[in-house]
Amino acid sequence: MLETLIAGIVIFTLATFLGVELINRVPTTLHTPLMSGANAVSGITVVGAMIVAGSGHGWISTVLGTAAVILAMMNVVGGYAVTDRMLQMFRRKPGAR
């Protein structure tokens, strides 16, 4: 059982280092969209929420899972949509009005 935990820790650690490398390349001008976009990515919890909501393990699981699906989907859709809205404003060509 502990092997899967260790494998998870390995993945987590490597992904953290990858994240540091990637994020350091994001210019300061895009830090706000970066945060809202990262927020959308953390809405990946929806995957766990869906499994809990749909697995039919009694009403408690279904209720908690459905609530989690709603919250995580707000994170996902709200995060991506608002990031897109901001990034559109940055896309205008420099100098062009």
Binding site: I11, F12, A15, T16, L18, G19, S42, I44, T45
Partner: peptide, 25 residues
């Protein structure tokens, strides 16, 4: 928190994305 959920339900994509967001913050 998302990464921890990934550990709970054993899903690597949650662990990876959680770690990316964690490092960005």
């Amino acid at each position: 928190a998302a990464a921890m959920t990934g550990f709970v339900i054993r899903n690597d994509v949650l662990i990876i994305s959680g770690a990316l967001v964690g490092s960005s913050g």
